[in-house]
Design a binder for these strands. Structure first.
Lengths: 248, 248
DNA sequence: TTCGTATTTGCGGTTTTCTGCATATATTGT
DNA sequence: ACAATATATGCAGAAAACCGCAAATACGAA
């Protein structure tokens, strides 16, 4: 394995898991841990990662360090993998933003060949790291709170698409009020996305369940699939099964 | 084995395996290590692959490995400050992408009140960190090399704007050939931006001066202001002054 | 063809980089 | 505090890169 290859691999692993262990790396790459350590040191000097005792942490992750985040990221990873398994080549997919969506983008099969439309700057960047999928950024004014493009132009652009799937991050989901948000502009975007898609998938950690926000995005009947980190048989999800929502 | 044959063979191998080893190549092609190295060097200069110790890596997998960039940041900071000083509240500004543009976004006066239009995902995010400016992301298919939205839609969107300024990162600038790029899609975007603006500002480190790329973006006469990290009186910039370009 | 020129290629010697090992030091968990 | 584990450092052998030069080859014009 070439040196540059190793560096690339380390950063890749770091993007995926947000942390790496020196021992793991030396095993997987078949070099001594001295070499791994030197690699990590070099990347650390170049500000590509945070070197710590025993391995390294992802830079982006460490800057916003938060114990709770660590826990959430793992759950979001579970969600991302479940969601990624539903995507097939040839699909046209509308995607909203949020951290779950970022993890979803990372979890996509490298051989996948599909088209993703999104209003999220961060999601677009993450999707673009994938080797083969096509990414279409929907333009409009950038809403600084959500880092989404929002407005009439964006809604109109979405309306001109007929997508197979729409993947939405959950802000709040409730058996009574359905899917809800508190940013009016974002709601318009999500409503447009739902309307433009044959199927609607909602992804989010179970914490977001059974909560409401000010503005309704969609009724439960508009949602086809719900993905959380929980086991599909978890009783917490039973209320949603009654509304003909598939649980993964 | 002829030289052109070898070059083709190397690129073919690279497409297949995403990496090649110098030693393997010299064996398979029956030439000396030096020859292989010179071949790789040539392809590397032509941006066809990434030369590394021991061989070469495929360009496509290399997305964002810019070690040299770290050293250039300081210069880009100088540029960014000069450019930021030219922006006034109320302006409508078209901005391209690139690392210089990112630094420029960071250098903007926090009290500035202006509208920025951009095709660059990264620039849009950076602009959005500013407290008061308005950011409009121009949508279209995302070009993975440049992380810019490119295509007919984007060009059309730009054409519908009448901007006061257009700030372009320099890829290559030359007194004969003018501003040039090697990505056709990006060229279309930049040309549209120039056409839609009253004034054109080019920013970039002096390294990019006196070099050419395959496709012309603009003649020198289309450029109003040139900003590099150099002192405006630096003799390197004299040739550009003759073309009625203001130097900052 | 034949000559002159430019490019290409291989070779030897030198320098740089890479990597693993051994040793000394630091950090962590119990 | 102590044992276990991880890290830093110097060193050495191997591999690769670099450099200059000379031979070989290709190319173009007379």
């Amino acid at each position: 394995m070439l040196k540059e290859e190793r560096l690339k691999y380390i950063l890749h692993e770091l993007n995926l898991h947000n942390k790496v262990l020196s021992a793991d790396l030396s095993n997987k790459m078949g070099v001594s841990d001295d070499t791994v350590r030197r690699d990590l040191q070099e990347l650390s000097i170049d500000n590509k990662l945070i070197k710590v005792h025993g391995g390294a942490l992802s830079k982006s992750f460490h800057t916003a360090f938060d114990r709770e985040m660590v826990y959430e990221i793992e759950n979001k990873n579970i969600i991302a993998k479940k969601a990624a398994a539903l995507i097939q080549s040839g699909m046209y997919i509308l995607a909203s933003g949020g951290t779950s969506m970022i993890e979803f983008a990372k979890a996509l099969d490298p051989n996948l060949n599909a088209s993703f439309f999104t209003c999220s700057l961060n999601a677009a960047i993450e999707f673009s790291h994938h080797p083969s999928i096509e990414v279409i950024m929907i333009g409009d004014k950038v809403s600084k709170d959500s880092m989404l493009t929002t407005g009439a132009n964006a809604v109109q652009a979405i309306e001109s698409i007929q997508a197979d799937l729409c993947i939405l991050g959950i802000n709040s989901l409730d058996t009574q009020f359905g899917l809800s948000e508190n940013d009016w502009e974002v709601v318009q975007i999500k409503k447009a996305m739902i309307k433009a898609s044959k199927k609607v998938i909602c992804i989010g950690i179970s914490e977001k369940l059974n909560s409401q926000q000010k503005i309704k995005v969609a009724d439960l009947k508009d949602i086809d699939i719900l993905i959380t980190e929980l086991d599909p048989n978890d009783p917490q999800l039973d209320p949603y099964k009654k509304h003909e929502i598939l649980i993964y």
